[in-house]
């Protein structure tokens, strides 16, 4: 990643893009409309694809162009299409009874991002000479992960849980494109394939939940304890 770190302008643009990825996570967190979650996830995926292109261009990692294309095709087009179809079929519009208000959720999200920054700084102190862009990438990776966890905890709609999981993978991809751009290309393809399987599995289970329980609100699932 040192090649990028030595380009101040590229570093600045990448930093901006990473901030956008983080802010889009907050957009998902702050909205109770599931369709908005999908739009924000789509935008996040396109930004990550742009980050991949920049790293490929200035870091001389040509395989990242392939990652960018796959990210756009799978995360930026196919997954949103599939999730919107699921939304249309299930008729889910918004979280009917959110556990916390948006404002409270956003504050907790902010605290979690600060926690992510503290962890990244700690790693930075451990690894002397870690460039600032890497610290930011670590922060975004962990921050998006934490926000996704928060979403999984506080959201009760099954499709929101699905988007929470997809967001986790976006956070990992955004961070790893900066931190480990040499991560084998083949692996990235498999990760994308894995995303599609997640969607398919969720679709099957969401249908089962609806047919057995009549709703897609996961709070009705309280039978199993002890």
């Amino acid at each position: 990643m040192n090649l990028i770190a030595h380009h101040p302008i590229v570093s600045a643009v990448l930093s901006l893009a990473l901030f956008v990825v983080l802010i889009l996570s907050f957009a998902i967190l702050g909205s109770h409309w599931v369709r908005n979650h999908v739009y924000a996830f789509t935008a996040q995926s396109w930004v990550i694809a742009a980050v991949s292109v920049m790293v490929a261009l200035w870091g001389h990692y040509p395989l990242l162009y392939g990652i960018a294309v796959l990210t756009i095709v799978v995360r930026g087009l196919l997954i949103p299409f599939l999730v919107i179809r699921l939304l249309d079929r299930t008729g889910v519009g918004r979280e009917q009874a959110p556990i916390l208000r948006s404002s409270s959720t956003l504050v907790i999200g902010g605290v979690l991002v600060i926690l992510a920054l503290v962890i990244a700084e700690e790693i930075h102190h451990q690894l002397l000479g870690l460039p600032a862009i890497d610290v930011l990438a670590l922060t975004v990776l962990l921050g998006v992960e934490f926000i996704a966890f928060l979403m999984l905890t506080l959201r009760t709609e099954a499709l929101s849980s699905l988007l929470g999981l997809l967001m986790i993978e976006n956070g990992v991809l955004a961070g790893s494109v900066i931190l480990v751009p040499g991560l084998p290309f083949f692996l990235e393809i498999v990760f994308l394939f894995d995303l599609l399987i997640i969607i398919a599995t969720y679709a099957v289970l969401a249908r089962s939940i609806r047919s057995h329980l009549g709703v897609t609100d996961v709070r009705v699932m309280k039978e199993l304890t002890g």
Partner: peptide
């Protein structure tokens, strides 16, 4: 229905 609940929790 308990199996569906278990599968969902397992997955998440």
């Amino acid at each position: 229905r308990r199996a569906v609940e278990a599968a969902w929790k397992y997955l998440v």
